[in-house]
Amino acid sequence: METESGYDPDLWRSLSEMGVVGLVVDEAQGGSGVGPVELEAVMEEVGAALLCSPLLASGVVAAELLKALGDKGVSERLLPEIAAGTSIATAVLTGDSGCWTEEGVTITGEIQDGGWQLSGDGSYVLHGQNADVLLVVANTDEGLAAFVAASSAEGVSIEALPTFDHTLRLAGISFDGVEADRIEASGSVWEAVRRAMDLALVALAGEQAGGAQKVLDFTVEYAKTRIQFGRQIGSFQAIKHMAANLLLETESAISAARHAASRLAQDSENRAEAVSLAAFACADAFVKTAADGIQMHGGIAFTWEHPAHLYLKRARADAQLFGTPAYHRERYLQELGA
């Protein structure tokens, strides 16, 4: 967390060898070839442990975006390296607005001297400072298109952004006439982005549910051991009732995350409804659990030496990535036909 890269390369290597990084990459391309359900289960553990890694950036968003774009040549070149963890990829989808929507795309692509060149400023790029491969969604004369560029290419400048959650790495990336290869999408580019973001949201939902569960566990444990007024503080209804409410939040988050994962795995018609429900329910549940968890601990959790603050910071960060809870409530209602 305190290092510049924000992750432990040795741990990253082990995760890659275990098949975690290439969880959703096909076996033919060196991945584990499993789906959203398994990813969600892994992410519950990731959330509990507050893992610091480019897993979401590279193994989830970038990998799924490549799969969804469906350019065989590019996929066969990039996915094996992503799955093996030897290459870290990330997607440039939005700019300073932080709107993960089609209108939020800030990069433009033009043909110059017979090749594509990218220009513009991207932001909120997950692990942008650690990436080798940049997948860039850009506006072109022909509409939205996807490109792949090397982070070391001329004209790319990467600036680490100061994140409130120190376990998170975000970068701003500027493109100044950067040469890039166009990815030949088999369908709509934004539809592919949508698919990648839906998988990312399910992964985040799992992380949030697992994080909330962990906070509830250590908070309840603390309430059983901390003595004040000659009693365990958990015997006070003021604490007990907060814990009961958090159990409802946590269990609901787990249900929502797993449900969304299974809907995504079945590629069912109402997958968007399930994903958006999980997105806001899990985001809100993790923030509430982490916040109330601090309150229930009292003074000790106001210090840096207790990990509770790390969970609140992660919870607040997770709640903003790929759309706010309010955005997802709105999307949920639209999916319900309103």
């Binding site: 309840v220 009693r231 365990q232 958990g234 015997s235 007990k240 814990a243 009961a244 159990l247």
Partner: peptide
């Protein structure tokens, strides 16, 4: 609801009973 929260706190989460 308040009694229900006591029950959940004590029987599910294993928190100690109020004296």
């Amino acid at each position: 609801d308040q009694i229900q929260r006591n029950i959940i706190g004590e029987r599910v989460l294993g928190l100690p009973k109020e004296p």
